[in-house]
Every structure is written in structure tokens, then in C-alpha cells.
């Protein structure tokens, strides 16, 4: 990975500075290049606030900035988890957060005129199942996977709770922000050079990675 900042200028909508710090590392790992990050950073107050503010964010990025793309990552919580069937042309699951965020983006950009030399700001959407701490534990605890969670949803016997995941990552259920950032960066460092394990265990991350990889084709 080159240390030189790439031509890609990106924005992230996240729920906290800790999520933001970790997602930046993961995005650059997938792109295999450094990005330039838009400031001030964009923050949302969790679901459904993300979906509510996304249209305004997209329009702002489109008209007022030279951002190439926007990265949106949310926790799935207890919502319906995205599956390959949802990717079928014209399909939309009303309770899947990836489907909902993609639909918001589609609706918002449909009638936007070109601005700042591009047709639209690109989007990459990921959903952490059930929370971003699941991603952090990938490669450290093989019992924590998206499949384990969806299996739990089907059987009604959940393999773990979001609180337990937080405890495993932070060692406390009331981590300070500084501690959260430190732990998040330590955990995602495992995936800095190779994100295949994370993509395999967490298809919600693979969706994000696929979106990001498609950007080069769309820009070039």
C-alpha cells in the first residue's frame, strides 16, 4: 500500500469517532491505497437517523464538496440481515438496512444534475452484524460471524448479545471514547493487509468492499 494519498476524496457517515477511525483503515485496506478524508467528519445518531440524514448528506457532498464517494456503515442491531437474494435486480427488502440505504441513495441521486465535474457522488454501504464490534472480533474469535448471528435469528437462540461483543472487545461495558478508538484500531490492524477473512465471515462488510472496488471502474 502506498503512503501517498490517492485521488479519491471520501466522506464517512459514522456513529462515533471510534467507528470512523476503524472504518477508514478498512476502506483503505480494500482500496489498497490511502484516501483523502473529508472534514469536518459526518456523524449520525444511529439508526434510523442515518437513513433520515443521508439524502441531505448526499446533496451536500454533491454540490458543496469535491468528494468522490461516501461510505456509510451502520449496525444491523436486530434487523433483517442482507443476503445475496436481496441483490437480485429490482429486489428490495423493506427491513434490510443495506437495501434501505441503497434505496435512499438511488432516490436521492436520480434527479441530481452533474456538479463539480462528476455525475454523482459514489456510495459504499456496509452493515455490521449485529454491531461493528463483530467486525473487530473477526480473526480473534471464530464463533463471531454473521452466519452465527443469522442462524441465531432463525432458531431464536442468539449466540451472543451486542453487549457481550462490546465486553469482549473493550473489556468493559462502559468504555471511554479514547479506549474505544484504541481497541478499534488494534483490532482492525489484523485486516490492514488482507480483508478476505473479514469479507468471508461478514458479508455485510463484503458488500461494502464490493462497492468500494467498483468505484475505480466507475471513475476510470
Amino acid at each position: 500500500m502506498s503512503d501517498a494519498r490517492s485521488g479519491l476524496k471520501l466522506a464517512i457517515i459514522s456513529e462515533s469517532p471510534a467507528d470512523e477511525a476503524a472504518i477508514k483503515v478498512l476502506v483503505e485496506a480494500v482500496l489498497r491505497e490511502r484516501a483523502t478524508w473529508l472534514t469536518p467528519t459526518l456523524r449520525a445518531r444511529g439508526w434510523p437517523s442515518v437513513a433520515q440524514v443521508l439524502p441531505a448528506v448526499i446533496r451536500h457532498l454533491h454540490f458543496n464538496t469535491d468528494a468522490d464517494g461516501v461510505v456509510v456503515v451502520v449496525d444491523s442491531d436486530d434487523s433483517v440481515v442482507h443476503t445475496p437474494a436481496h441483490d437480485a435486480p429490482g429486489y428490495f427488502h423493506p427491513h434490510c438496512r443495506i437495501c434501505q440505504l441503497r434505496a435512499v441513495y438511488r432516490q436521492t441521486t436520480k434527479k441530481l444534475p452533474a456538479a463539480r465535474g462528476r455525475d454523482r457522488v459514489l456510495r459504499a454501504v456496509g452493515v455490521a452484524v449485529p454491531a461493528v464490534e463483530g467486525w473487530y472480533l473477526c480473526g480473534r474469535d471464530e464463533r463471531v460471524t454473521e452466519a452465527a448471528w443469522t442462524s441465531g435469528q432463525e432458531t431464536g437462540v442468539m449466540p451472543y448479545t451486542r453487549g457481550e461483543l462490546k465486553w469482549r472487545v473493550y473489556g468493559t461495558d462502559r468504555p471511554s471514547l479514547a479506549h474505544e478508538i484504541k481497541c478499534a484500531l488494534e483490532e482492525v490492524a489484523r485486516h490492514r493487509r488482507d480483508t478476505r477473512r473479514l469479507e468471508h465471515d461478514f458479508p455485510g462488510f463484503a458488500s461494502l468492499a464490493n462497492d468500494l472496488r467498483s468505484w475505480r471502474r466507475q471513475i476510470d
Binding site: T172, R174, S176, L177
Partner: peptide, 13 residues
Amino acid sequence: RDLLYQLSHPDGF
């Protein structure tokens, strides 16, 4: 909030 938690849950810090 974190500073207040430092008061109420010092072991976590």
C-alpha cells in the same frame, strides 16, 4: 458521559 462513568465505574477505567 465518559468522565461521569469514570466516577461511577472507576474499575472500568
